[in-house]
Design a protein around this nucleic acid. Structure first.
Lengths: 341, 341
DNA sequence: GAAACTCACGCAATCGATTGCATTGAACTC
DNA sequence: GAGTTCAATGCAATCGATTGCGTGAGTTTC
């Protein structure tokens, strides 16, 4: 049996400072309402007793936990982890803690709903567009539970969101490759349950058509956003007997897999095939070749989404008109692409 | 002003089922103490009202939050993110949520202590050996706050820990390189505030001496565990005028930086210099060349540490005899190393 | 048939912080 | 100097779930 420490309560502080608990509470939350003499005495008592507030009691009374719930499909992914970092930092600055739920890790049965409605978290940051609308409603999205979707587009436009323009970004990738003289362009897309995947695919197709380029079915292969699937996608293309001169992968990890697959097939990147990734994860600039990619403002996505959520929680934003922030992504040209001919 | 939803309480359920709140509580926590008829009626009422427990109230009364605090120096790092994933998964299986604090992100002033002693978390998983002993004591490590240190060694041996044998692993790396015929071996170490860094450095030095190899000061360069610092370390070696035939980097990211730095200097890996990393992050096997590295059981570290912490919290483990789990790491030989001559 | 016992459930206190309202005493007004 | 105002503080209810203790009905025992 563990020895239970005696944790000082607000009553202990009150006794020590010879005031009531109410006064101690006021010193802590609205010091201007307490006389200077008393305030100093209480502050001293807080120090002397080593008092820290009991959040459980505060949450119960205040009906707020000062905690955000972050839900991402896969926290282990380097893309998300940067975002998580930004969320934790921003939340911390505002005095909020961050509970992290990862779909992969969590028991799907208790998934999100248990966390909410239970005063464990005041709002939800959803980095997973694959949750369907009815699910969002269950979670209270439409019933007033503060909710901000980020990075991946939610099916429900009534939800606040912080996104990048995936379709536009994908079009710019195709334009860039076209500008380098490429006419035979393939695409390794991601998980189709993610809206952002579909947007990137759509952007690819739209721009290919706009430029009068032929979309070759063998060159449009789905992946699952990891390196293995990028490798697998290239193997399929190789097996089909003919190769494009450029491949646009829907994220950097698949781009890495693609480059490795090319090498495996005796093809060089960018010599034989140019490759463009998406996200600009840390290793992209250090890979060999350094990968040309669509840089995403991951830190900004995490920060802005968190700030928006906190504003909503604290009542600064009307729920009526959903806020939609669209951030810009930027093409970073490195060594995995080259001018044709 | 946001519309506040009416969240059903245990009283609402009680009214609906025409029993007392106490009975509802019992149905939820020890159903065997309630008669079958009543139990069914209450269960139906729970469903009908959509009741979910108010964790704040429960925590207050029970003095437990069913939440773990995970503290890592840098959640954005791909090494840690896998561990985080495992922790969340394991905790979830046991009904615990995970609050994540990242040193980089968090306001250093509120850092850890505020989270604890405040009934926000029942225990601490510390993935950061750089916190000094006095700090640990402040956090209650010795006063009964459930605490498990993992991955990085805590200065205080009275703390439960789940570690790998960094020194031994580093020695095995040197032995391996020696076995390939390398005699001139360099080391890029990590942040010296981390105990694991020092252990790896010590293991390197010990084995070098044991094998009668000369430790060249210009070839032992500190880094900060990122790719940039690996690159910087190689630049320093190059600037010194002579190069080792093999470099052991204290993590994979620095190994990547090292390889890139070699290329920049017109040297090839493994042709001119063999490189060994540490950790075996996902990209290690997909890098060009695929990196020889010390594989660490990251998932196991996260899982075992979490299980241990929960056992301690729930009183299954005596605090008296600290538990020290030492996991094995394994050398994975890939293409960044070659036999000399 | 009464004592002893068991089972199912309700009552009410409790966890610790917050806050509307009441109280006190001092300062100020005419 | 009596009345008014105001600042500072205390009192006590409240948030929602848990649990020790008590009660009443039903069952068993001799």
């Amino acid at each position: 049996m563990a020895v239970t420490r005696k944790i000082p309560t607000i009553q202990d502080v009150a006794r020590h400072a010879q005031v009531s608990a109410a006064t101690v509470s006021r010193v802590l939350s609205s010091p201007e309402r307490v006389s200077e003499t008393t305030r100093k005495r209480v502050e001293e008592a807080v120090r002397a007793t080593g008092y820290t507030i009991n959040q459980a009691a505060r949450s119960l009374r205040m009906r707020s936990a000062r905690t955000l719930l972050l839900a991402a499909p896969d926290v282990g992914n380097p893309f998300y982890s940067t975002i998580v970092e930004a969320v934790i930092g921003t939340a911390g600055q505002h005095g909020y803690g961050v509970l992290v739920a990862s779909r992969l890790g969590d028991d799907p049965n208790r998934w999100l709903s248990d966390y909410l409605n239970s005063n464990r978290a005041d709002g939800l940051l959803l980095f997973d567009g694959s949750l369907d609308t009815s699910r969002l409603h269950d979670l209270g999205g439409a019933e007033g539970l503060p909710l901000v979707a980020a990075y991946d587009e939610p099916p429900d436009p009534a939800v606040h969101s912080v996104l990048i323009d995936n379709r536009e970004a994908a079009r710019r990738v195709v334009q860039f490759l076209h500008g380098l003289g490429h006419r035979q362009i393939g695409h390794v897309s991601g998980l189709s349950r993610n809206q952002s995947t579909n947007e990137r695919l759509l952007g690819f197709e739209t721009e290919m058509r706009a430029l009068g380029l032929k979309i070759v079915p063998e060159w449009v292969v789905p992946g699952i956003y990891n390196m293995e699937s990028g490798l697998g996608a290239v193997r399929k293309m190789v097996a089909s007997g003919h190769m494009p001169t450029a491949i646009f992968a829907a994220n950097d990890e698949m781009a890495i897999g693609v480059i490795r697959g090319l090498r495996e097939a005796g093809l060089s990147c960018p010599g034989d095939v140019s490759v463009v990734g998406f996200d600009d994860i840390a290793v992209a600039s250090y890979y060999d070749p350094a990968i040309t990619t669509m840089h995403q403002p991951r830190e900004a996505i995490g920060r802005i989404a968190t700030e928006a959520l906190i504003e909503i929680i604290e009542g600064d934003v009307s729920e009526e008109r959903p806020r939609h922030v669209m951030l810009k992504s930027e093409l970073v040209v490195r060594d995995s692409t080259r001018r044709l001919g």
